[in-house]
Design a protein around this nucleic acid. Structure first.
Lengths: 198, 198
DNA sequence: TTCGAAACGGAACGGTTCGTTCCGTTAGTT
DNA sequence: AACTAACGGAACGAACCGTTCCGTTTCGAA
C-alpha cells in the first residue's frame, strides 16, 4: 500500500549491497504477492515498484525461489515460536493454529504457495525449497516429535512418518486454500499423530 | 514419441468435435509434459506438435488446468483400482505403492504436479482442481476409510482427519519429487493412519 | 438439394514477461 | 588517484499468452 511508487533514483553506496534497495525490493515483492498472488507476480513489476533495476534484483536473488524464500523468512522469525508444553497433542494443536494464522495474515502464506508452485517447474527452485528452506524450517518441528518420542508418547520408529504426515497435511490445506480454523479437524489430526500405537 | 510431427492439415469433420484432434492434442500434451515438465509446457508447443490450431485447443480446454486434468484422467482409469482386502493397513500400503508407481511411470504424475502448481496462480484452476478433480478422485479413498470405520478398525470421528493426513502425505512426496519406494516409511505411515486410538 | 452453422488449421495481432546486456553514475577500497 | 563493484535505466531478442480474423470442410436441418 505505502511505498508503492516512491524511491526514484536510489543510487549505489559503493561496492557493496545497498540495504535500502534490499528492503525496497522485499517490500515490493511482499505487497505484490498480497495484491495479486503468484499469478501476476513478475520481476518487472517488483523492480518497477521498488524503483530498482532488474539487474540489481537478479544479482541478489537469481531465481524467484530465492526471492520467495527471502520474503517468507523476513516475517517468520519474528512471528511465533514452536510450543513445547510436554504434551505432543496439545503442542500440535497450538502450533497448527498459529501456523495457519501466520499463513493467513502475513505474506508468507502466499510466498510459500508461490515457492511450491515454482518448484514444480524448475529443478533449481525445487532444490532451493528442499535445501535452503525445508532443511532449516522443519528442524524445530522434528525436534518436537523427537522429544515426544524421548518421553515415550510416540514410538521412535514413527517419527519420520508422523513428521511427513503432519507436514503434508499442512501443505494440503495451504495449497487448496483451506486455512480456515477447523478446530475439530485440527484436534482430530493431532489425536492421530500425537499418540502411541502404530 | 510417435505422432510428434505428423498430422498436417487435419480438417473439420463438421459441426462437432474431431476425436482425432482431441487424441492428437492429448498425446502432444502428454509427451511435452514427459519431456519438459511444467516449465516448458506451452499451448503453442502443444498446438505445434499436435498439428492443431490454438483456437481449437482453447475451444475444448479453456484453461491449462482442464488440459492437465484430461491428460491425467486419460490414464488413471485403466491404470489400477483401490484395493479392499478388509485390512486398512494392508490396503493403504498397497494403494500407496501403486499410486506412486503410477505417478512415476505415467504422465499423470507430471500432470498432477502441473495442475497443483497452476492452481496456486489461478482461482479458476484451483476451483477446477477441487471440483472437477478432487471431488471425484478422492471418493474411492474416502470409501476405504469409511469401510474401515464400519468394521471398527478406526473411529468414525477420525475419517476426515485420516483422509486429509493421507492425501497430504502423498502430495508432499509428489511435490518434493520423492516418490521412490520407501517401504519402511509407507508401512509406518499406514500404521499411524490405519489403526484405532486417537 | 440447398444452405446455415460449427469445427478445423493457419497466421497474425498486441501485450507481457523473461533473463541478459549495455551504459553512465556513485561511492567505498587500496 | 586508480580500481572495483553496486546502482538505476533502457533496450534487446525470444517466448508465451489469449484472441481475432480467414478460408476450408463437413454435418445436419430446412
Amino acid at each position: 500500500m505505502a511505498a508503492a511508487k516512491a524511491a526514484p533514483h536510489r543510487t549505489s553506496i559503493g561496492a557493496r549491497r545497498n540495504p535500502q534497495t534490499e528492503a525496497a525490493v522485499l517490500q515490493a515483492a511482499r505487497n505484490l504477492l498480497i495484491e495479486k498472488g503468484y499469478a501476476g507476480f513478475s520481476i518487472d513489476e517488483v523492480a518497477r515498484r521498488a524503483g530498482a533495476g532488474k539487474p540489481t534484483i537478479y544479482r541478489w536473488w537469481p531465481t524467484k525461489a530465492d526471492l520467495f524464500i527471502a520474503v517468507y523468512t523476513a516475517d517468520k522469525d519474528a512471528a511465533f515460536v514452536v510450543p513445547d508444553t510436554g504434551n505432543l497433542r496439545r503442542d500440535l494443536v497450538a502450533y497448527t493454529s498459529a501456523l495457519w494464522s501466520f499463513w493467513r495474515n502475513s505474506p508468507s502464506g502466499r510466498a510459500f504457495r508461490a515457492l511450491i508452485a515454482e518448484a514444480q517447474g524448475s529443478e533449481a527452485a525445487l532444490a532451493a525449497l528442499k535445501e535452503k528452506f525445508l532443511a532449516t524450517r522443519l528442524a524445530p518441528l522434528r525436534r518436537l516429535f523427537e522429544q515426544a518420542a524421548a518421553r515415550g508418547d510416540i514410538p521412535a520408529a514413527g517419527i519420520a512418518a508422523r513428521l511427513a504426515l503432519y507436514v503434508g497435511f499442512n501443505w494440503y490445506r495451504l495449497l487448496t486454500g483451506e486455512l480456515d480454523e477447523d478446530a475439530g479437524l485440527i484436534a482430530a489430526v493431532a489425536a492421530v499423530i500425537g499418540t502411541d500405537k502404530g
